[in-house]
């Protein structure tokens, strides 16, 4: 069900990062975050506005600046 919610919102699963990513919205959810949060919470996060030109990452542990840089580099 969570997968369907993400799929309908145009999030695609990136296998080598284990993340659901929407490149247009510049938002990404880690697999751990999706597993540990409810469908309602997921829907709320999907509805949240994008962060301008910056990526918004939904992780269980807030990604450090270094991790953000790496992810932004690989996700483009």
């Amino acid at each position: 069900m969570k997968k369907e919610i993400l799929h309908r919102a145009n999030y695609r699963y990136v296998f080598d990062r284990d993340m659901y990513v929407n490149r247009d919205a510049k938002k990404a959810f880690s697999l751990e975050y999706v597993q540990d949060h409810s469908e309602e919470e997921l829907l709320q996060r999907i509805r949240e506005a994008a962060n301008g030109s910056n990526w918004r990452f939904y992780f269980n542990s807030e990604p450090t600046e270094g991790v953000r840089r790496e992810l932004e580099r690989v996700l483009g």
Partner: peptide, 13 residues
């Protein structure tokens, strides 16, 4: 790497 959320290493760690 698979143990890290997002499967990336933090270059500062």
């Amino acid at each position: 790497q698979r143990r890290q959320e997002g499967r990336v290493f933090d270059p500062d760690r």
